[in-house]
Design a protein around this nucleic acid. Structure first.
Lengths: 227, 227
DNA sequence: GGACGAAGTTCGGTGGACCGAACTTCTCTG
DNA sequence: CAGAGAAGTTCGGTCCACCGAACTTCGTCC
């Protein structure tokens, strides 16, 4: 009795799967119960119980005290949730004129309520987009996702010119700050030195003025280095 | 500690309030526990318990074995849910190109997930509509609703010309049938005789061909009689 | 006015999702 | 290599929403 549609899952299960997938989207750090708990904002005791059920439903592999991994079935469902989330975000921005720092919360609740039919309609109306407003890739209806090979701005050498691929943070304040500085997906940045030992980087957007970005910000910005 | 926003209510409470309001939108029949149960598709024992809680929250007036009535606070919240529902339906039709028989189920789940902010955005994008795709009036953000004074097609005398104001049914099959016959809000109908004692009515839409409508259909169609 | 059936209520029980507190396991460090 | 602290698990308990079965109330009709 394998689950085939994400609509058959409870909202809570949908959330766990998406959280687990997200936690390993951009790193290879093992996914642990406490990291999941932090992500979904629940106690570890709650998560621990949930992991047992997910294991039983064969959506994850998890041996006690060990790391969590999605099974193929779990991954497929998680990607369906990620697809929902990112399509909804894109829709909110393009059709309802949300700003990109407003979409996450709204998408978080809508993603559990929309039907597969509606997801497809949204996809169609938007012209089957491949990136969401943060630059994140949108999985296809078949569950295929192609990750841009981007690096964190934090590690980029001074003097480089880079293209912003995606902004990973969910904090609206930081997103607003980056947006007002012009650091958006698709922007071209000239990377300079920061104040020595400050951990900050000086960045010029297009041909505009320079901005100083500290590590919280540079960690959130993923770029490809241009030749 | 009076509730002010519909978002503070549980989905279940939201449903009860909307159901109670809907049950007295077009009739003055007393709203009873069993009618509510039928509407929300739950057992009367469940509804009975729920009514006790709603009473305690001062959203309804209900003395045991008696009829149910919304308090002013309950009515305001119910109207907010009706507003959500009808705006979402309109949005699904106009923006996502749903047909009018597809919108009800989708709106039913979305209405619990959207934020007040999103409701307002939808309202704005649609140009602050006053009727939904079925012709039902949409309450304003302030909770004002103006009912068209329409009558059921069932009672209209042969020979009249009428304007379709609204279609009240939620059965997709009936809605499709009426739509394909051209019986839509805004349509002009010439009402004729039906087969004697059949309970049916012959109706001509615009200048098209005639259709026979039985009572299930004519009961669902609300019209104003033109001079 | 009494009895019957329909409508409504009460009550015990279920399942999901969550919590805090107590306990176990793991890991790292002295 | 022992033990402390962090991470993870277990367990009892809560709340919500629902159900079925048993019971009560109401209206009506003979």
């Amino acid at each position: 009795m394998t689950v085939t549609s994400v609509g058959d899952l409870t909202p809570s299960v949908q959330n766990y799967l998406k959280a687990i997938w997200s936690l390993q989207e951009w790193t290879t750090e093992p996914v642990t119960a406490s990291r999941i708990a932090e992500r979904v904002d629940l106690r570890t005791s709650t998560v621990s119980g949930a992991l047992a059920k997910l294991t039983e439903q064969e959506l994850i592999d998890h041996d006690p005290y060990g790391a969590v991994e999605l099974t193929p079935a779990g991954r497929t469902l998680a990607l369906a949730m990620v697809r929902r989330h990112r399509l909804i975000e894109t829709f909110l921005v393009q059709v309802l004129h949300y700003t990109w720092d407003q979409v996450d919360d709204e998408a978080e609740s809508l993603e559990h309520a929309v039907s597969d039919f509606m997801v497809d309609r949204i996809d169609e109306v938007l012209g089957r987009p491949t990136r969401d407003p943060h630059g994140d890739p949108i999985p296809s209806a078949e569950g295929v996702i192609t990750m841009p090979d981007a690096v964190r701005l934090t590690g980029v050498a001074a003097g480089s010119t880079v293209l912003v691929e995606r902004i990973s943070d969910r904090d609206p304040g930081l997103l607003q700050h980056l947006a007002s500085a012009g650091v958006l997906p698709g922007a071209r940045l000239a990377v300079g030195e920061g104040e020595p030992y400050s951990g900050a980087i000086e960045v010029r957007v297009g041909d505009g003025a320079g901005v100083n970005l500290g590590t919280p910000a540079t960690d959130a910005v993923f770029v490809t280095v241009l030749p």
